[in-house]
Simulated scan of single mutants.
Amino acid sequence: MARTGRVRCETDLYHVTIRGCGRQIIFEDAVDRNFFLDRLELLAEQERVDVIAYCLMDNHVHIVLFDPEGDLGVFMQRLCCVYARYFNERHGRSGHLFQGRYSSAAIEDVRYLLTVVRYVHDNPVKAGVSGRECYQWSSYRGYVEDRGFVSRSLVYELIGGAVRFVEFSSSEDSRRDLARVMHSDGVGVLEVARTALGGRDPLVIGASPGPERDACIRILSECGLNASEISRITGVSRKVISRVAGQN
């Protein structure tokens, strides 16, 4: 079956993730990371793509992009190819470096962009690697110190500058918005549901009173979970979920 093309988002904002094949390491050291960032900056300028945020982890990368020209596929293909070629040559390996094609999630609401940027910068925190302020391989410090090649103007405009950015990054985020980002990034359904429900076990939903059960189902649906996923983790029938959330 032919691969379907990606649908262009009206805001031209995307959260892109690149993962190592089989979760393998894609950055061995600072030399690798600096090469990737140098090429990210260079290719973004050439393809007229704005890098709004990024975070390099050992086996995956998050990038938030503004792509007004609609050439996201060309940009990502060039970036992935040039880095994979470099990495294989430097480390004496062959074969695929990345896990298939990059994944991209459209950011349909510019205010939702803030939640996505925060999620990206929090990756080293959630992995237990480092605090966001100390992590060298994300764009967080570029926002705080107003430096680097990332395009900060849209986020600053939405949030009110660097000081407010730090305050927002340290505040409690909307559980529902955070769960939406997690789901679009491929995080497990059970973890997404627990985040959206404030830590509650989804299995208790089926035994909850009708109005409470229905409210929880709507929350999970709004986070991007489909009827089959909700049914699997809650025990509620798909028929009930379809009626409550309007899903087939």
Rank of each mutant, 00 (worst) to 15 (best):
D177L: 11
H96Y: 02
A53W: 08
D146K: 15
Y54C: 05
M1L: 13
D50F: 01
R200Y: 13
V129I: 15
V49E: 00
S228R: 05
G131S: 09
R101K: 09
I241G: 08
V82M: 14
H91C: 03
A84I: 02
I26F: 11
L113A: 05
G235L: 08
T17V: 15
A53G: 10
D122E: 14
R3H: 07
V82E: 13
V192Q: 01
A193W: 06
S221C: 14
S171N: 01
E167I: 13
G161D: 01
Y54P: 03
M182N: 04
S103D: 11
A207V: 10
G198Y: 09
S171D: 06
L79S: 00
S242F: 05
A127P: 11
V181L: 10
A162F: 09
E133Y: 14
R39L: 00
E229W: 06
I107G: 10
R218T: 02
Q247K: 06
L197A: 10
D32M: 07
C216G: 05
L79N: 00
Q77C: 08
V244H: 02
R39C: 01
G70T: 05
T11C: 08
R132Y: 09
S138F: 02
V116G: 06
S138P: 06
R152T: 12
F168W: 10
V129K: 08
G95E: 07
S139C: 01
R111F: 05
Y112F: 09
L190I: 14
G210F: 15
M76F: 04
F168V: 10
C134V: 10
S231G: 13
I217S: 05
R23C: 11
I18K: 02
G148W: 13
G131Y: 09
E145G: 12
L97F: 06
C223I: 11
A207L: 11
E41C: 07
L13H: 03
A162I: 06
K239V: 15
R238Q: 12
G246N: 08
L158Q: 08
Y86M: 11
L72V: 09
C80W: 03
F66C: 08
R194Y: 04
C216T: 07
S184T: 12
G20F: 08
L43Q: 03
F149S: 01
C9N: 04
I219W: 00
D29S: 04
R243T: 07
I241T: 05
A30K: 12
T234Y: 13
G22E: 06
L97R: 03
D185C: 14
H96L: 12
R232G: 06
R194T: 08
L158A: 04
G186V: 12
R101I: 00
